[in-house]
C-alpha cells in the first residue's frame, strides 16, 4: 500500500488532546502556576520562584503532618492487607454462605465517607455509643475526644472497618481464580497448609495484591473526610493528616501559593511511593 502524506490527519488527534488538556493538564498547570507566584488579587501577582517550595519543606507543622500521615498509611497497610488475605482465605468457596459473606463484606464499602465518620463518632462516644460505653464499662479509660492515642486508634479502627473488606474481596476473587488442579497437586505432594499458602496461593494473589496495596496506600494517604467528621483533626493536631492541613491552608487561610506548592509535593510523594510499591511487588520473584 502506498502512503499518502496528509498533515490534516493531525486534526484527528485533537479530541483526545482536548480531553487530556481539560482533565489533567490545565488543572495541574494552574496549580504549578500558583506555586511560583504570590497572588494578592486579580491582576496583582508576583513571581516568587521556588520560595513557596522552600517555605513548605521547612514548615514544621507540615513535617509533623507528613510524618503522622506516613505512620497512618503504614499502619493501615500493615493491618488491612494481612487481615484482608486472612478473611479471604476463611471465606466459604461457594454457595449461599459465600454470597452471604460477600454481601456482609460489601456493606461498609457502600457507606458514604462522611456517614462512616458520623457512625463512628456516635459509636465511639463514651456516653451513648456502644463501643465507647462498652470499653469504659470494661474498666478501660477511653475518650477519643480527649486522648490523642485513643483518637488515633479510633481513626485507624474506622479505616480498617471501612476498607479491609475491599482487600478481602480482591483477594477472594484472586483465590477463586486458582485452578483446582493446583490444590490437587499440592495434596498429592503432601504440602502443608502453610506451604499451600506460601507457594500456591500467595504467588497467585500477587496481581490483586498490587492493586490492593496501591489503592489502600493512595486512599489512606489522602484520607480526609472520615477523621474530619470524627475528630476534626484533634485533639490538638493528633489526627490532622496531610489533606486536612492542605485544606486549612488553601481554604481556611487562603494561602494559595503555599498550598499549591504543597499540593505538588504531596502529589509527587504519592506518585513516588506508589511507583516504589508497584516495582517492589512486581519484581519480587523475577528471574535472577
Amino acid at each position: 500500500m502506498r502512503k499518502i502524506p496528509d498533515n490534516r490527519a493531525w486534526w484527528l488527534v485533537l479530541p483526545v488532546l482536548l480531553l487530556v488538556a481539560f482533565s489533567a493538564l490545565v488543572p495541574l498547570m494552574t496549580v504549578v502556576n500558583y506555586s511560583v507566584q504570590d497572588i494578592f488579587g486579580p491582576g496583582n501577582a508576583y513571581y516568587v520562584g521556588t520560595e513557596w517550595f522552600r517555605d513548605v519543606l521547612r514548615d514544621e507543622r507540615l513535617q509533623a503532618s507528613l510524618l503522622r500521615q506516613f505512620g497512618f498509611s503504614a499502619a493501615v497497610l500493615a493491618i488491612e492487607i494481612p487481615l484482608g488475605i486472612g478473611i479471604a482465605l476463611m471465606m466459604p468457596k461457594g454457595g449461599i454462605r459465600a454470597s452471604l459473606c460477600l454481601i456482609l463484606l460489601a456493606i461498609p464499602l457502600l457507606i458514604p465517607w462522611n456517614v462512616v465518620g458520623t457512625i463512628w463518632q456516635i459509636f465511639a462516644r463514651g456516653d451513648i455509643g456502644l463501643f465507647g460505653w462498652g470499653l469504659n464499662e470494661l474498666g478501660l479509660s477511653y475518650n477519643y475526644t480527649g486522648d490523642p492515642v485513643d483518637a488515633w486508634l479510633t481513626v485507624l479502627l474506622m479505616d480498617v472497618w471501612h476498607w479491609t473488606p475491599l482487600v478481602a474481596l480482591l483477594c477472594y476473587s484472586g483465590l477463586r481464580a486458582i485452578p483446582e488442579a493446583f490444590y490437587q497437586a499440592a495434596e498429592i505432594d503432601r504440602a502443608s497448609r502453610w506451604a499451600v499458602f506460601r507457594y500456591i496461593q500467595l504467588p497467585r494473589l500477587k496481581n490483586v495484591l498490587v492493586i490492593a496495596v496501591l489503592l489502600r496506600f493512595m486512599d489512606s494517604f489522602m484520607i480526609y473526610t472520615e477523621p474530619f467528621v470524627l475528630t476534626g483533626g484533634g485533639p490538638g493536631s493528633s489526627t490532622t493528616f496531610l489533606s486536612q492541613t492542605l485544606t486549612t491552608m488553601a481554604v481556611g487561610q487562603f494561602d494559595l501559593g503555599r498550598a499549591a506548592a504543597f499540593s505538588l509535593v504531596y502529589f509527587l510523594i504519592v506518585l513516588l511511593v506508589s511507583w516504589l510499591f508497584f516495582t517492589a511487588i512486581t519484581h519480587m520473584d523475577k528471574e535472577r
Binding site: 497437586a185 505432594d189 503432601r190 504440602a191 506451604a195 507457594y199 500456591i200 504467588p203 520473584d285
Partner: peptide, 22 residues
C-alpha cells in the same frame, strides 16, 4: 496429571524438591 501443574514461583529444582521437603 494430564495438564501439567508446576509451582511457577519456584525454580525447577524447588519444584522437584517440593514433595521431598514436605
Amino acid at each position: 496429571f494430564q495438564f501439567p501443574v508446576v509451582y511457577d514461583s519456584m525454580t525447577v529444582f524447588d519444584n522437584l524438591a517440593f514433595p521431598l521437603r514436605n
